[in-house]
Simulated assay, not measured.
Amino acid sequence: MAWFGLNLASVQAQARSYQYTDAHLHYVNFFQESEGIQALIKAMDKNNVSSAMLTGLGPIKKWDQKSPRKPKYYMADDGAVYWYSATDVIVARAVLSLPKSQQQRFHPFITGFNPSDLNAVNHVELMLELYPGLWQGIGEVITRHDDLTALTYGETATADHEALRAVFDLAAKHRMPVNIHSNLTSSRIHEPQYLSEMERALQRHPQTIFIWAHAGTSAAVNRGVILDDLDKLLARLLNQYPNLYIDLSWSVLDDYILDSKGRPKNEWLKLINAYPHRFVLGSDLVGNFSNIGKELRTFNTLLDALSSEVANQLAHTNFLRLLPAAQTPK
């Protein structure tokens, strides 16, 4: 009977299908190029993605005159990266080109500002004025981001930078969540040396909803450092800061949540079950959308190990609950 019960549970898990909300999707790449909104809709329809956070990319890669060919990625050469405000206009025009029925599937976030510029909040206010009723969040705010930080012109952006205080306050005023990329460490240091920056932001802005991209990890950092007990660190932060939510997009899944055999680790299942409303999933695609289903389905092993209720929250509804319309009292 025990064998039968386990086998039945396994079959039921395998039979599950999921409706996804993509909580981390970039409409453009690091050259502000995109396949286009119709290609995105086609990919979403094909892969059971009902809605998506949609943002641009604040940084743009420079094609340096000394580069023999046009780079195809920000790490393709040592040419610099700079901040590009028109990324928000590109996103706004794409969404507004759609009929209302399709517009409702997208949740645009503002990202076209330099996070180390005290004028940053002015850009956010301008976007809210130019496109009233369109924007539903802010980010991905890119602060510490391994090689990207090293290539970016000017001052290093940090989660606790003075320039971001007004941005975070404005987000709270408009009940807009903030997706923020803030690495816990560098690729050579085995302690979370930048954690205090993220904690200061959380402490200073208790009314601001923060979605922490990749739970403070990145693929580049993970190649050199895997932090011990990340699940325990997140448990402490989630308990201490009710305004914190965790984006589990790919670098967390591959290097932390799954074991060497591709199975979810018990400690991560325990963490997600303890805070079932505090995690979201995203593809983190940049301008090319053909792999949206593949990226989101990589989470199915994790989802199948959770109850159907928690799995649905993680795959679909948790992100939607954070948006301004969902937070408005009825």
Rank of each mutant, 00 (worst) to 15 (best):
K270A: 14
H205T: 02
R297E: 15
L296H: 01
Q207V: 06
T298Q: 10
V225S: 00
Y256H: 10
Q207L: 12
P324C: 12
N222R: 07
S196V: 13
A315L: 08
S307D: 14
Q193M: 14
D228L: 09
L258P: 07
S290L: 01
L323W: 00
S307G: 13
D304C: 12
D304K: 14
L258C: 02
S249F: 02
L202M: 07
W250Q: 13
L271Y: 07
A305N: 13
L271T: 11
G282C: 03
K270W: 04
N273P: 05
E199N: 09
R297K: 15
I257S: 01
L296A: 10
G262S: 06
S187H: 10
Y241I: 08
R278E: 11
L296Q: 13
T317P: 01
R236T: 04
Y275I: 03
T317C: 06
L323D: 13
F210A: 14
W268L: 00
H190M: 04
L320W: 00
S260C: 02
S308T: 06
P276A: 08
A274T: 15
R278I: 03
L253G: 00
R188P: 07
N288P: 04
E197P: 00
D231E: 15
L302D: 06
I257F: 01
A311D: 12
L248P: 05
A235L: 10
L269D: 09
E267M: 02
F319N: 02
A274N: 10
D254R: 02
L306Y: 01
Y275V: 09
R200L: 14
P264C: 04
Q313P: 01
D284F: 01
S290Q: 07
F299R: 05
L184W: 10
I292T: 02
G216F: 03
S283M: 08
I292F: 09
V280C: 04
S196I: 13
R321S: 12
Y245M: 00
T208S: 09
A235D: 15
Y256I: 03
D304L: 05
G262T: 10
N318K: 03
H277W: 00
Y241R: 06
Y245I: 01
S218E: 14
P192D: 06
W212I: 01
S196D: 15
I226L: 00
K261D: 13
